[in-house]
Write a protein that binds this DNA or RNA. Structure first.
Lengths: 111, 111
DNA sequence: AATATTGTTCGTATATTTGCGAACAATAAG
DNA sequence: CTTATTGTTCGCAAATATACGAACAATATT
C-alpha cells in the first residue's frame, strides 16, 4: 500500500484527463451535459461507432466517476455525476491557474 | 481527407486531455508552471522514472502543444507554451460549463 | 583530440486501449 | 412461454502507450 509515486491531486487530475482523452468520450460528455434524453440508444445514435464500443466508453467514464448510469426497464439511462464533474472542473481550473501570467516562457520549439 | 468523425473542438479537447492523462505528465506541467529552473535534469530529478521515459513524456506534451523546448549548450530547457496553455484552459472551462447547474442528473450508479 | 555532461533515440518487452461482431442477459410485449 | 428490444460482456485483433537500458549525438572542458 501507499504505493504513490505522485501527489494524489496529480493522480486524480490525470485520471479525469485520461477519461476525457478520447473524442468519443468528449462527445458523450457533451451530449449528457446538454441533452435530456440520455438513454444508451440516444447516445449511440450520436456516435459513429458500434454499440459495444459505446458501452466501453461509457464504462470508462463511469469508472472515472464523471458519469452515472441507472437501469430503467430494458433501457439504461446515463447522466453526468454532478459532484465529480464540479470537482474535476475545479481540479482543471486549479491546474491551469498555476502558471503565473507574468512568468517568462521563452523557449523556442526547436523542431 | 476530411476524415473527421467528431467536432474539431472535441478532437482538440481530447488531444489536450490525453496529453494530461498521466500523472508524470501532470507532475511535469506542475513543475514547469511553478519553477524557474526547468532544464531536463531538473525535471528528471523530480520524477521517479528513467530519463528515457521522462524524455518520452516531454515529447508527448510537446506534441500536444502544451510545452516547448529549446536547446542551451548541452542542456535542454522546457517551458509551458502559454498560448496553447490558455487555449486549453479555455476549452476545458467551456466544456465544464456546458452542464447547466439546474439540470437534473438523477441517475443512480447501479454497480 | 580525449573526456565529461546532458539528453535523445533505438530496440525491446509488456500492458493498455480501441474497436468490432457475436453471444448473452434482462425485461417488456404478445 | 415466445419473441422483440435494449445494452452488456466475451473473445479477439490491431494499434498505442509505458518503461527501461544501451547506444548515440552534441557540446564543453581539459
Amino acid at each position: 500500500m501507499a504505493n504513490k509515486k505522485y501527489d494524489s491531486d496529480q493522480e486524480l487530475l490525470a485520471k479525469y484527463a485520461k477519461a476525457m482523452g478520447h473524442p468519443a468520450r468528449i462527445a458523450i460528455l457533451d451530449f449528457l451535459a446538454t441533452q435530456d434524453n440520455c438513454y444508451f440508444g440516444n447516445i449511440h445514435e450520436e456516435l459513429p461507432i458500434s454499440k459495444a464500443t459505446v458501452s466501453q466508453h461509457l464504462s470508462a467514464l463511469k469508472e472515472a466517476g464523471l458519469i452515472q448510469g441507472s437501469i430503467e426497464a430494458p433501457k439504461v439511462k446515463y447522466c453526468i455525476n454532478k459532484e465529480q464533474w464540479e470537482f474535476a472542473r475545479m481540479l482543471f481550473a486549479k491546474e491551469f491557474s498555476k502558471l503565473n501570467p507574468d512568468k517568462e516562457c521563452t523557449c523556442k520549439t526547436s523542431k
